[in-house]
């Protein structure tokens, strides 16, 4: 193994990390808002809201993200109407096209995860909150949403990891994130194995941090599932 080359490769690929993270975070943040909206539409019980959400989720979960990115970037740019519209300053930039495609894609998956979380909120807790006189808004904000997030977190963690990796597809629309830089370096040096090992390791480190963060969040949100502190147990045992 040529460690000097691996080190040089790392130095070449690291400048791509901020763009990778920016793409992933923008898409996850915007996607989460959209996903929550979609999940609520699905659970609204109103056909006029339920069906559009169903169609949206079906479309974006059933087509490859690669195709979605390609159609949004190259496809939309072919129409004069799009090129002369107020949207063009955004759609002209590969960055915003990538954010848009990633956002729309993750929203579809996340909406189903959120829907599962919302459905898993125990009915007894909702009834208790109602009995305590909570309004619908307060009930949703204080009881339903926190419990739903807790239930959805393990599955949502996977979606976060998928999004970090999905940013690699942005390289096909000329964005020089980690994979884009790796492809460029391979084209220059013809050393695909070493470059991909380094690129893969960068994603590994990024996702290691993400999994730790998700685990920490999970722990924080489930204090009731942790064993009680030892001192109290001893007290109880002595009695």
């Amino acid at each position: 193994m040529d460690f000097a080359f691996l080190y040089d490769t790392l130095l070449t690929l690291l400048p791509g990390v901020p763009l990778t993270l920016k793409l992933a975070f923008s898409a996850v943040a915007l996607g989460a808002v959209l996903a929550l909206g979609l999940a609520m539409m699905r659970l609204s019980g109103l056909r006029a809201l339920d069906w559009p959400a169903r169609v949206y989720v079906f479309l974006f979960r059933s087509t490859p993200l690669l195709v979605q990115i390609f159609l949004i970037y190259y496809g939309l740019g072919q129409f004069r109407e799009v090129r002369t519209s107020w949207l063009w300053p955004f759609l002209r930039e590969p960055y915003w096209c990538a954010v848009l495609a990633l956002t729309l894609n993750t929203a579809a998956y996340a909406s189903e995860i959120f829907r599962g979380g919302l459905l898993a909120v125990p009915h007894g807790q909702v009834e208790a909150a109602r009995a305590a006189g909570m309004s619908r808004g307060l009930l949703f904000r204080r009881i339903v949403l926190p419990v739903a997030i807790r239930q959805a977190l393990p599955a949502y963690g996977s979606e976060l990891i998928l999004m970090i990796k999905a940013t690699a597809l942005a390289s096909i629309i000329t964005l020089m994130e980690v994979t884009g830089l790796a492809a460029k370096l391979i084209a220059e040096t013809y050393r695909a194995i070493e470059v991909f090992i380094v690129a893969g390791s960068i994603y590994l480190v990024l996702n290691f941090v993400v999994t730790r963060l998700v685990l920490a969040a999970e722990r924080r949100l489930t204090p009731h599932l942790r064993p009680a502190p030892v001192a109290i147990l001893n007290d109880g045992g002595a009695a």
Partner: peptide, 18 residues
């Protein structure tokens, strides 16, 4: 300088004015 995988991708962006 913007780099593309194929000439066709680049031509699409030339036509689109990117």
């Amino acid at each position: 300088v913007r780099t593309y995988k194929t000439s066709q991708d680049r031509d699409l962006d030339l036509k689109a004015g990117r």
